[in-house]
Write a protein that binds this DNA or RNA. Structure first.
Lengths: 201, 201
DNA sequence: CCTTTTTTGTAATGATCGACACAGAACTAG
DNA sequence: CTAGTTCTGTGTCGATCATTACAAAAAAGG
């Protein structure tokens, strides 16, 4: 991009990654420019030159989050042999992704963003769209399950996709509260028992 | 309390109610003292004299929330004739309580507090305890269901209580995103299909 | 009446917020 | 080399934050 002029002395990608982790852990408002400068190892004028503003940096950070942490979980939805296996694999992947790790904060950055605090409208719109996209992915997989004959044509797609989204979102909240992967797998097992036609009487 | 001296000119209970609604809608950090003074109709010195600090006011507000909005939902757990009816009635009550109304903001104040932003430790501890108490109430009802013979003794109480808590918490997130009661009742119907022994094959 | 006590309104405190002005440093193009 | 361009570091801007001094006002006790 910048062919002439003084070269940038920091790795933009690494700085964005650090900003993503800081925002993920503390949220938008609670992460100050000072926090970001410390986490990214960059002075504020360099940060503004590279990213524009705190809000623009957050938007890039959450976009990066979706690119990096979305596929390992949400691609499972399509990889499953059946719609049921897809949903189950999605939720099982979430049990590994949601709890805190050595490098990542607990919970889902997009699910938990802007649900309890007032955030800038631009950010609130983006994260809400991500959550709506999750619902859309679930709905699409269930619809294909009906088309494949795996699910009865009478299946309430809207309700079932919202239900499994609820399970994912609730697991994200509990991961925030310290739930471990083993505790979340129990939730998944219980949730899969709600699959239409899975009678065990 | 104050027998002598100039009498207070505002209704402390009404002011607390207004503060609760403001905190509920915007969260702790995003609600400034200016916002609170406007919402409560009180100048800041009077506010500090009556409540101590912003943090102490929040703690009183969330305590008031639990007292007012907790029982209409969570008492349903014990009122049901069976454990299954109790859980279903709890979730159905939530479908009426969680969506935004003319007077209340959307979502559950205790469920969504401090999940996306860093809040003062004292507040984070309190709201997390409330969420853990919800889990405890579910667990206790399921345990009594096992004792009554309504549920198999092999029931994974821990997993099932976490599962229904997930559903409640996920519905709270979706209510934040604008879900209506009708959409949440579909989630409840799907969730109740996961009840152990509810075979429909 | 006067004193004591508490609340009220005005105004200001220091701290922190996001964002930026400016000058010097580091690079390319010619 | 010089000129043009971009980045870095220091320092600071006005705004807003939670909190509080201070004095006038409103009540009760004597």
């Amino acid at each position: 991009m910048a062919l002439i002029g003084r070269p940038r002395e920091f790795d933009r990608g690494a700085a964005l990654e650090a900003a993503m982790l800081a925002f993920w852990r503390k949220g938008f408002a609670a992460t100050s420019m000072n926090d970001l400068c410390d986490a990214m190892g960059v002075r504020s004028p360099s940060l503004y030159a590279a990213f524009g503003s705190k809000e623009a940096l957050y938007l890039e950070a959450v976009e990066h989050y979706v690119e990096i942490f979305g596929p390992p979980v949400w691609d499972k939805l399509a990889e499953g042999a059946t719609a049921r296996a897809g949903v189950e694999n999605l939720l099982l992947a979430a049990t590994e992704s949601l709890p805190e790790s050595h490098v990542t904060p607990p919970g889902c950055m997009a699910t938990l963003a802007a649900v309890s605090d007032e955030w800038p409208a631009g950010i609130a719109d983006v994260v809400r769209k991500i959550r709506i996209d999750m619902l859309g992915m679930l709905r699409a997989r269930l619809e294909s399950g009906v088309a494949n004959g795996e699910l009865p044509t009478t299946t309430d797609i809207e309700a079932l996709s919202r239900f499994y989204l609820s399970v994912y979102q609730g697991m994200a909240v509990q991961a925030r509260d310290g739930a471990a992967a083993a505790e979340l797998t129990g939730v998944v097992a219980a949730a899969m028992a709600a699959w239409p036609g899975d009678g065990r009487a």
